[in-house]
């Protein structure tokens, strides 16, 4: 408090709070995401366990029934679907983390943020970076299965994969943020998730090769931003191998370019939705 004696003018001339800039609010919102995640134990277990089980069961079950075209003879389904499993982990954890935005609105935390002199960009950025961190953190855990998938990676390849994961996570988190900001309830959000995100994942070349499928399907695959994310992961994972056992299908510059553009696009989308709206916060 400012002093022992009340100012004569009722505090009207008191110094206003400093303007916080972009990074301090962004950092504090990011930190809050981390703490909240760690305190909700169910989220930790669910987030780590689900994709691993999914990958192991699918991979083992489909091992003999799926022929991978354009690939070396000995490529296993576990290996083929490994980059796709990473993409799935990134997509689902990033999107699930942005659901907390709906909770923030419902529980009221968001209204307190909206009346602070904080630039709307740092609100979006703090939240998106928080969810990105959680997604990438979980995907990193998953990388211990690289030997089990039968992929040999060097340091360069691992670092490149990490960078690709960050880029991908940022992009899909932006998408999640934008969807969550517009959703009235978590139920509505789940519905949208199933309608949009599941097909996005399936039609990305993550779990089955799309090279031999129907022309119309291939068109959708080519328009799906996640296709390029999965391709990017295929490139980075085999960066150190002389001859990759699975062809990514898209060139590295193309995969990188589209993934960057997608990340920028979803971030701008999120930013616009936060800036435009002020009234719905107080529901």
């Amino acid at each position: 408090m400012s002093g022992q004696t009340p100012p004569v003018d009722g505090g009207a001339s008191r110094n206003p709070a400093p303007l916080p800039g972009i990074w301090l609010p962004c950092r504090t919102l990011w930190q809050r995401e981390m703490v909240r995640f760690l305190r909700q134990r169910g989220r930790v277990i669910g987030a780590l366990g689900t994709p691993v089980i999914f990958w192991l069961l699918m991979g083992s079950g489909l091992r003999d029934s799926l022929q991978v075209p354009d690939a070396a003879e000995n490529v296993s389904y576990l290996e083929f679907s490994f980059p796709g499993a990473i993409a799935a982990i990134l997509l689902f954890t990033a999107i699930f983390s942005t659901i907390s935005l709906i909770d923030d609105r419902r529980e009221g935390f968001l209204q307190g943020v909206m009346v602070a002199p904080v630039s709307r960009a740092s609100i979006a950025l703090g939240k998106i970076l928080g969810a990105t961190t959680l997604a990438v953190g979980q995907a990193i855990f998953f990388l211990v299965f690289i030997p089990a998938a039968g992929i040999s990676t060097g340091v360069g390849s691992l670092l490149a994969t990490l960078a690709a994961m960050i880029l991908l996570a940022f992009g899909v988190t932006g998408l999640g943020f934008w969807l969550a900001w517009r959703s009235e309830s978590t139920q509505a959000f789940h519905a949208v998730m199933n309608l949009v995100l599941f097909p996005m994942l399936v039609l990305s070349g993550a779990f089955f090769p799309t090279a031999g499928s129907a022309a119309w399907l291939q068109k959708i695959v080519a328009c799906n931003p996640l296709t390029y994310g999965v391709a990017l992961l295929r490139h980075t994972l085999y960066l150190d191998s002389a001859s990759p056992s699975v062809s990514p299908g898209v060139s590295l510059p193309m995969a990188l370019g589209v993934s960057l553009a997608f990340a920028m696009f979803t971030f701008v989308l999120s930013l616009l939705s936060v800036s435009r709206e002020t009234t719905r916060v107080l529901q």
């Binding site: 504090t28 529980e107 209204q111």
Partner: peptide, 29 residues
């Protein structure tokens, strides 16, 4: 220049009182 207290709660229930205040403080620079 204004402090706002909402009718509906605006605290994060998964954080302590001290953590809530710390985050709020940083939002005010």
């Amino acid at each position: 220049r204004i402090g706002v207290v909402f009718q509906s709660p605006s605290l994060d229930l998964y954080l302590s009182a001290r953590e809530n205040l710390r985050h709020a403080g940083r939002l005010y620079g």
